[in-house]
Amino acid sequence: MMKTLIKVFFAPLLWLAHACSPLGEPVDVEKSDNHYYNNEKSDIRYSPMGNWFELGNSPMNADVESFEVLNRFISRDRNQVYFMENPVEAGKVDLESFHIKKGDFMEHIGFDKKYVYAFEKVYSTEKTFAKFEKIEHADPKTYVRLNWDWGKDKQNHFYKNALIDVDYASFKNINDYFSKDINRVYFHYYENFESIKADLNSFEVFDEGNFAADSSKVFSVTYPSQDETKLVTIPRNPNEEISQLSYAFIQIGERVFYRGTQLKDLDYREVEIIENSSYIKDKHFVYYKDSLVQDADATTFGKISKWEIGDKNGAFREGKRIEEK
């Protein structure tokens, strides 16, 4: 009975939504669920997954007769190439030879007879527009994108759409921060890619990925800001054992560090991470990240409820005691 009442109640709303839809038939249902004719078939409308009511729809002002869907994001007509709903600047891409390739991570990549292009949608306060970047030195015949950061062709590797100077045959990306070849170790993050002074034979990356080490150094990734990601080098003796305590804390011999900063008050023999959080303590001191928590009772400090960390006197948030209201 209840199901019948729900159907009766919602049926008119569904009919009204369908009747008011600005979308007609999909242009090419096999290639895209984002491109549709309008009801009169006089224009193309871009609507993510056809969900025009929640995700919107945009007129593309394309030439309907020659319009062709290439994949979910890239299309073309006789005049220009489009990325999502926005046209790419006319004359910048060779239309006659322009094409795409199928494959994982390839939906934002286009090709013509000379170049490889990476497309993206740019959002601004004034308007959105399609931006494309020519991937310099990339061979359009052999280029493939391996994931969102890495690509290669028959003779070069690329990071963030930029050519990198590495040994092609031996190059291996280890994780989000480190890679190496037969000659060097590399650090990369955001737009930065650089070689670092590391011993190739002893270099290793720890499980969490934020730390690496060789026989004489520990490398710690820090994040002062998006544009200032740094790699801090911490000297070590070859006989010092290294133990990664969490994603951000590491123990090197008798020293404990938060990323690249030593926590000098802590006794390495007694350190304890509080519930895999940014808190660490021993019997006498509590640290939040690299800052000493001055008024914390180390003996009772820990998880005090399902959602709270604190001591016998109350809860803390981001290293500060929460004042009771």
Rank of each mutant, 00 (worst) to 15 (best):
H99N: 15
F206Q: 06
A296W: 01
D227F: 07
V286Q: 00
I196E: 02
K283E: 04
F193E: 04
E318F: 07
D165C: 06
A90C: 08
E126G: 08
W148K: 12
S32Y: 02
K152R: 14
L13S: 09
E254P: 02
Y287A: 04
M106A: 11
P22I: 01
Y223K: 07
V27N: 00
E85I: 03
S47H: 06
A315M: 02
A248W: 00
V29Q: 13
P87K: 09
M84I: 10
I322M: 11
F98A: 13
E40Q: 12
Y268L: 06
D43W: 05
S42W: 12
T229V: 15
T299W: 01
R259G: 00
M84W: 05
E318N: 14
Y177D: 03
L163Y: 02
R45A: 02
K283I: 05
I182M: 03
A90Q: 14
N237Y: 12
T300R: 02
L231I: 13
V271G: 05
G110I: 01
D181N: 08
A169S: 15
L70D: 00
P22R: 03
T142F: 07
F9V: 14
D149L: 10
L16M: 14
I174K: 02
M106E: 11
K312G: 04
Q244E: 15
S170A: 14
A90K: 15
Y159M: 08
V81W: 01
H157L: 11
Y258Q: 05
P235E: 08
K134R: 11
L200I: 12
K230G: 13
F285E: 00
I74Y: 00
D43E: 10
P59F: 06
A90E: 13
I44W: 00
N175R: 06
W148C: 14
D290V: 06
D290S: 13
K121C: 10
K152C: 07
A212T: 03
R317M: 12
A169E: 14
I100T: 15
E85Q: 15
K312E: 14
V293C: 03
L16K: 08
K113P: 01
K172N: 11
F178D: 00
V64T: 10
F98C: 11
N276Y: 04
L163H: 03
Y247D: 12
Y177C: 02
V116Y: 01
R184Q: 15
K3H: 09
K7D: 05
K114F: 12
V8N: 08
Y177A: 06
K281R: 13
E323A: 13
I309P: 01
V27T: 04
D267R: 08
E240Q: 14
P26A: 08
F83Q: 02
F171C: 07
N156V: 04
M106V: 14
F193C: 04
K303I: 15
S216D: 12
H35Y: 15
D207P: 01
T299S: 06
S170P: 10
A11L: 14
G24M: 04
D43S: 11
K154D: 15
R317H: 07
N156C: 07
H284L: 14
Q244R: 05
F111H: 01
F67W: 06
F257M: 12
F316H: 01
F119C: 09
D165V: 04
Y37L: 08
I44E: 01
E318A: 09
K325E: 11
